[in-house]
Design a protein around this nucleic acid. Structure first.
Lengths: 181, 181
DNA sequence: CCCCCCATGTAACATGTTACATGATTGA
DNA sequence: TCAATCATGTAACATGTTACATGGGGGG
């Protein structure tokens, strides 16, 4: 059921968009904004092993007889299911408190996997939760001492980020509106 | 020299603002926005041991003869030095790529530790680096396929966050302007 | 009387980082 | 020929999470 960590799901999500070798995946983390979610070969290869052991991906060795074999991974039906339930998890307050990065990953991989209705729901739930988080943070900020000011300013930078994401989410939600909502 | 992780420096930073027990620190992580940097007793107590072993903090057992002793930690001069060099590290591109959270922490603990000149420098460097990061991310976004759209939208949410922080940093920098700059 | 809070930890576990190892192949 | 790139991994290490253990004290 659980079987995968954030990195695991990311790998699964990328592989789901097209077969990839371990090396390909390393390159993606090195050369694209996925590198924001820092990862290294020493984490990626073991994670692929785990995913394969759990039956979420299958590896097929290409060019086995040549001197430079590549192991190409594809998502299994079980892997696709796992991916769908990962991205479909309800957005919780904790998700928002601990950082929006995991949520951004889940959102990024939603495309093509779930209905627009669910994507829309994800964004509206996110907006609501961020608003209450911002309210809490602002309340806390008002209790902070004026000196030294950097602590409060740091908190304000966090608040600014939350607000930016909330406004992004409102904009993005429009792209996934369906007649029923 | 190195001796501390992000959590270690956070603890050191809090302790530096006033003596704290392990329990106090746990409470801070549970009940304030510091909880964003998720941490648990199982991480905090070992981290305190490490800091003490490295001479960055000293623990003094209060009420030793009573049945509920508390161990109160204070920052040593070596601890203060370590803290100062941590917050004074130059802001690098990697810091910005991997996430602004560590930078926010360093900024939060700068107050009272370093001159306004350095704080101002931190903010202007940050602004510059964020701008180039935003440029890179926008260039990448323009190479992404239109379908499915969630991946690109997720990237746009990241860009929006970077922009929010850049604009926060420009505003904040004004509070630390000195005559010399 | 029972439960929750104070206050400190420990143990098992999974995961990630850094650094290294291997060896062919491609381009300058 | 010499370096960089392809392509796979392993080993040591530190750190963090979860869950548990302890045991008195205060409030309902």
């Amino acid at each position: 059921m659980k079987s995968a960590t954030g990195l695991g799901y990311s790998l699964l999500g990328i592989i789901n968009q097209g077969p990839q070798s371990g090396y390909d995946l390393c390159q993606i983390f090195e050369t694209t904004p996925m590198g924001h979610y820092s990862s290294s070969p020493g984490a990626i290869y073991p994670a692929l092993k785990r995913l394969e052991k759990d039956g979420l991906i299958t590896g097929e060795t290409e060019r086995a007889e040549t001197l430079r074999p590549r192991r190409i991974y594809r998502a299994t039906p079980a892997g696709v299911s796992a991916l769908i339930s990962w991205v479909s998890k309800p957005v919780t307050r904790d998700d928002v408190v601990h950082g929006l990065e995991d949520l951004a990953l889940r959102f990024a991989f939603m495309g093509g996997l779930v209905e627009d209705r669910l994507i829309h729901r994800f964004l509206t739930d996110l907006t609501t939760l961020i608003h209450s988080q911002v309210t809490e943070l602002e309340a806390f900020a008002s209790t902070m001492p004026d000196e030294p000011p950097t602590a409060r300013l740091a908190l304000e930078s966090g608040i600014a980020q939350y607000k930016a994401v909330a406004s992004w989410a409102r904009r993005a939600a429009k792209e996934f509106e369906t007649t029923s909502d």
